[in-house]
Design a protein around this nucleic acid. Structure first.
Lengths: 252, 252
DNA sequence: CGCTGGCTTGATCCTTCTCAAGGGCAGTGG
DNA sequence: CCACTGCCCTTGAGAAGGATCAAGCCAGCG
């Protein structure tokens, strides 16, 4: 059993020593296999807030694991606005959607100082030729992603503003918890604007819902610091599940 | 070069003789490999309209290729309503989203008389252990699906009713074309209701948009028969691309 | 100290939903 | 063959949830 993950990690821990390892890629690999994976992973490259990991249209070369910090992916709408497609927290994998094209279909940008593990895809493929378990794990990752995206579509096509934001908060909470952090209080890495963009809502709506949630004692929010004060109610709004409903995250 | 696909096929054509083979799974396999895949595929089972291929919660055993007809997948919202998550036309693969769970996360129902190829997943996995190409193809399928879902999320969070329906029609058109059918005129396999459900719109809105599109000479619609009369304009509404924007379908 | 960017709040507008009703087509049974 | 009965589609009128527009506020920062 490893200890709780830390936000900040030394730059070059090996996979086998990384406290996120049980959450990240190598989940399914034996220790020996992990060492192999370890060799192909490029570390370092701490990104400052606003820096890009890759741009839409860049040649697809690698998938990435967030080690600390937070990344958003986005694409341009036809009118040239930004459409955020996902937020990635430590131990989460991004870049998979480029796999069947030769370029990334989205851009990835750091929302705060962020450490990344880069996994060159070609070598990952070679390695996964050797280890069926790694392969299956990759498949599962993608399949999970598909299910989560479908949850997101449901949110976008059927839920109102309150429900969307409740769902989003509960989802974040469960992802934090999974990483060993408090699911009761945490810090949002994205602005209200980005949240609204992602959820298909105007900033003003996000703000109003936050205000209302606070009036009703569901949460308290000071800037980006969030505390969930009534998770039962919030989960109900989010639509059922006692915790952990939506995209990207968790699930056993 | 095979001839154009037919809607109705004899019940037990081998994969190598199936006119959809270039569109369906075995794309990447050599002839010899196709024969192996051929052995594990279960055919037959023509579904009548309304019959289910599998239900949400059923144990996950297989992925399926539509041979003729049309399938919709759906799940239940928290309020118990139906939420349609996808429409599948001949040569398209469904069931992949169950891959990392032991049960299907959605139900799949025939919208008209439908022929299906069933591919038991366990055997597919074994086979894909042998053939890296098959494996990569599966990966690509899932990765494509992820990108298409993201297009769909964009549609749901940013597009208005007109744009959604234009996008949907253009998408269908390009899928039909890819199968060798006319992309100018085709028959919808879904009702206005189902379309609205999928696109996050009320039936009435769908109906009104159809009426307006006809007044403006964009399309003509008689019942489920659709003719695209001004594809340039329609594509523009759908947001750019000369053809083939959205979910599930095509792309090179 | 003044600026800038992000957040909040208020007022108004607009798109789409909802409710209600009517028409058409298809399948069923007399 | 025709009437009946659903279901689907269309159209209209009204309601509502968010978007948009417009200020003002607050905190961090040069």
């Amino acid at each position: 059993m490893t200890s709780k993950p830390n936000v900040r990690q030394p730059s070059h821990v090996a996979c086998r020593d990384c406290s996120l390892s049980s959450l990240c890629l190598p989940l399914a690999l034996s220790i020996k296999d992990i060492d192999q994976l370890d060799h192909i992973i490029k570390r370092g490259r701490p990104l400052k807030k606003g820096e890009h990991l890759f741009l839409e249209g860049d040649p697809f070369t690698s998938v990435f694991a967030v080690r600390s910090g937070a990344i958003k992916t986005y694409t341009a709408t036809n009118e040239g606005e930004e459409q955020i497609t996902g937020f990635y927290l430590p131990s989460e994998i991004l870049g998979l959607s480029g796999m069947d094209t030769d370029t990334y279909p989205v851009s990835a940008q750091a929302m705060e100082t962020t450490m990344i593990c880069e996994i060159p895809f070609e070598q990952l493929e070679t390695l996964s030729d050797q280890f069926p378990e790694l392969r299956r794990h990759l498949m599962r990752l993608m399949s999970k992603r598909i299910r989560e995206d479908q949850q997101m579509m449901m949110l976008l096509s059927k839920k109102n503003a309150d429900e969307r934001i409740a769902t989003f908060l509960i989802n974040l909470a469960s992802r934090f918890r999974r990483r060993g952090f408090s699911s009761q209080s945490f810090r949002l890495s994205m602005s209200r604007n980005e949240m609204g963009n992602y959820l298909g809502l105007a900033v003003e709506t996000v703000s109003r819902v936050f205000t209302r949630f606070q009036k009703n004692g569901l949460i308290s929010a000071v800037g980006k610091e969030i505390e969930i004060r009534n998770s039962v109610e919030l989960c109900a709004l989010a639509g059922g599940k006692t915790l952990e409903p939506n995209p990207i995250a968790t699930s056993a």
